[in-house]
């Protein structure tokens, strides 16, 4: 198996994910409507200036809509990561996961390709959202949209890997909703998405620590800075480390040797 084979495999997996996404048009609309509702309806109720300080990377006072936009970008990727996770559990129940796993290419590569395919889809959704937001004057400097891309790839990979890890742990499709409640909402709310961390610190040190520990916070901060052409080094490294952790655990989860698939067993036959 040479490099060419690897690339063909990657292309095949990405094409399949793209086809599945396009067929589920409802999913695309939902992915777009969700953050837009937060942006226009939720944020409209919070029109005051965010406290007295100017938060980097912003150089002046910003409206709340501008502040939560990076968090909403993170939300799109978070939901997408969970959606990929759901697809993987579905695939496993429906059998198409087996098609993937009997490929002669190494398993870690196959899972990584699936991850990349999911990230590609999430990036499309993010830019669609940003285009709509720009029509309402919630925008960033032009080069910011470009410098955002590497941050999107990194955070998309991290959240996708988290989704993959969860999918290897979840036994059945029905359990999915419960697990998601334990993952999506805490991750989203205990972060710097809706309120800057220094404000949280003022009210509760414990909550502040939880938020600072939450990898989603760092994904959002990384995106926030990238949107203005800056690099938040600490957050980026935190996301990278989380990505390595989640991906490692996910591959472990799908490994045929230690595999949790083995332990759970198959329908008797």
């Amino acid at each position: 198996m040479t490099a060419v084979h690897y690339l063909r495999c990657l292309r095949g997996i990405v094409v399949r994910e793209a086809l599945r996404f396009l067929h589920q048009r409802g999913r695309f609309i939902a992915a777009l409507v969700r953050p837009l509702v937060w942006l226009f309806i939720f944020a409209a109720g919070f029109r005051s200036v965010l406290g007295v300080s100017i938060i980097p990377p912003y150089e002046t006072y910003v409206l709340y809509e501008v502040y939560i936009t990076p968090g909403l970008i993170g939300m799109i990727q978070l939901f997408n990561g969970m959606q990929s996770s759901l697809s993987m559990v579905y695939d496993r129940e429906m059998g198409s996961m087996k098609t993937l796993l009997v490929s002669p290419l190494p398993r870690w590569y196959l899972l990584t390709c699936k991850l990349l395919a999911g990230v590609a889809v999430s990036i499309l959704q993010v830019y669609a959202f940003l285009i709509v937001a720009a029509f309402w004057e919630i925008d960033a400097p032009v080069w910011g949209y470009v410098s955002l891309l590497p941050a999107l790839v990194l955070s998309g990979l991290m959240l996708g890997a988290l989704g993959m890890l969860l999918s290897s742990v979840i036994k059945q499709l029905e359990n999915f909703a419960g697990v998601m409640n334990f993952v999506i909402f805490p991750m989203f709310f205990a972060s710097s998405t809706l309120y800057p961390l220094w404000k949280i610190k003022e009210s509760s040190l414990l909550l502040y620590n939880i938020c600072a520990f939450n990898p989603f916070t760092h994904a959002v901060e990384m995106i926030r800075f990238a949107l203005y052409g800056q690099v938040n080094t600490f957050s980026s490294l935190y996301v990278l480390a989380s990505l390595a952790l989640f991906l490692g655990l996910a591959i472990y989860g799908y490994d045929p040797g230690r595999g949790l698939i083995a332990r759970r067993g198959e329908p008797a036959g």
Partner: peptide, 27 residues
């Protein structure tokens, strides 16, 4: 496999091409 593992939402040729890609075959 005993359990059908084919993608119901894709076409026959899309399914076959996906399988081919997984095995590193050129288009």
């Amino acid at each position: 496999f005993q359990q059908p593992t084919i993608d119901l939402d894709l076409s026959v040729s899309q399914n076959l091409r996906y399988h081919a890609a997984l095995h590193g075959m050129s288009r």
